[in-house]
């Protein structure tokens, strides 16, 4: 009786992953097939709720007959594909992606899986020399040109933290340019487009127009970018402060799911509570109402139940 139009039952497509046959619904990606086959495939720029941009290339696999490796996260399975996930070529490219990222970006707040992958692929983050700051301010870099080439180490993305609003900070020295925040701010969810990728090449960066501070941008502080950031480049201001003070203790935090107290849409909130105080608010990616997205009230409007003074 409640019906939404029933989808036509998907056809199954069979491919092989590391020699074993895997049948997945048509339209599935190689990543889906790998996961179904129980193969742990590293991903950084991939997220279930966003269209894959396949920019990080850490999920590449070898497909028989393909000249280059292919990104598992976005390539649809075709019948008869023979996929290899652990060949020398795959291991080398995955290792290099991890080494290249680690040589240019601070990764110590990234998801714990990242450390596991670095170990598994034997990536040596120091291989390209010690990370050095760029010679020019990154936000002023002109496309098609760069400063003197450094020989003492590896040019990195280091730059000062952008702390320009009461709600969250942007620490782009941690940004791996996975595009997730841009997608979440853009067509995939919020459609506010306060941030986009600016510049190009190694100087590409996430930026507002002309790098104006967030309060001068279109930002509406929904925090949906924080929700999807895999490396801690975007963080609640309180979390940023607590991490700086050394008081951030995820192991002591309890997460409770509840419903937003404001308008009547009924968004699911996950309250991360440490010492009887909300320190972060997320939303479950899998819930069909929010798909992980909130507005400023849901994300930041929790202070009224807290006795501690507002962040500021």
């Amino acid at each position: 009786m409640t019906a939404r139009p029933l989808p036509i039952p998907p056809r199954l497509v069979t491919c092989s992953v590391d020699g074993a046959p895997v049948a997945v619904p048509q339209g599935s990606t190689l990543l889906d097939a790998c996961r179904q086959a129980g193969i742990d495939t590293p991903t950084l720029c991939y997220l279930e709720t966003l269209a894959p941009v396949n920019a990080c290339r850490v999920c590449v696999v070898e497909v028989e007959g393909s000249r280059t490796l292919v990104p598992a996260c976005s390539r649809p399975v075709e019948p008869g594909m023979a996929v290899r996930t652990d060949t020398e070529r795959v291991r080398l490219s995955r290792r290099l992606v991890l080494e290249l990222l680690a040589s240019s970006v601070t990764l110590d707040r990234a998801a714990p899986e990242l450390r596991r992958w670095i170990e598994r692929y034997g990536a040596d983050p120091g291989r390209f020399g010690p990370p050095l700051p760029p010679t020019h301010p990154r936000d002023a870099a002109a496309p098609g040109h760069h400063g003197a080439v450094l020989v003492d180490g590896a040019e990195a993305c280091h730059q000062p933290v952008k702390d320009d609003n009461p709600n969250y900070v942007r620490d782009y020295a941690r940004c791996i340019l996975c595009y997730k925040c841009v997608e979440a701010c853009g067509t995939e969810a919020q459609n506010t487009f306060a941030i986009a990728v600016a510049g190009r090449g190694f100087a590409a960066r996430i930026s507002t127009e002309y790098d104006v501070p967030l309060p001068d941008s279109a930002c509406v502080y929904c925090g949906n970018c924080i929700e999807v950031c895999p490396t801690g480049a975007l963080a609640f201001r309180g979390e940023h402060r607590m991490r700086g003070e050394g008081t951030w203790a995820e192991e002591r935090q309890v997460v409770t799911t509840t419903i937003c107290p404001y308008c009547g849409v009924g968004c699911n909130l996950e309250l991360h509570v440490q010492d009887n105080a909300v320190v972060r608010v997320t939303s479950p990616l899998g819930h069909e109402v929010t798909r992980g997205n909130l507005c400023v009230k849901g994300r930041f409007g929790f202070q009224f139940v807290q006795n501690r003074p507002g962040e500021g």
Partner: peptide, 11 residues
């Protein structure tokens, strides 16, 4: 200089 900056191996 001409890399678009999208993918890690090239960027």
């Amino acid at each position: 200089d001409e890399s678009c900056g999208q993918c890690v191996p090239c960027r």
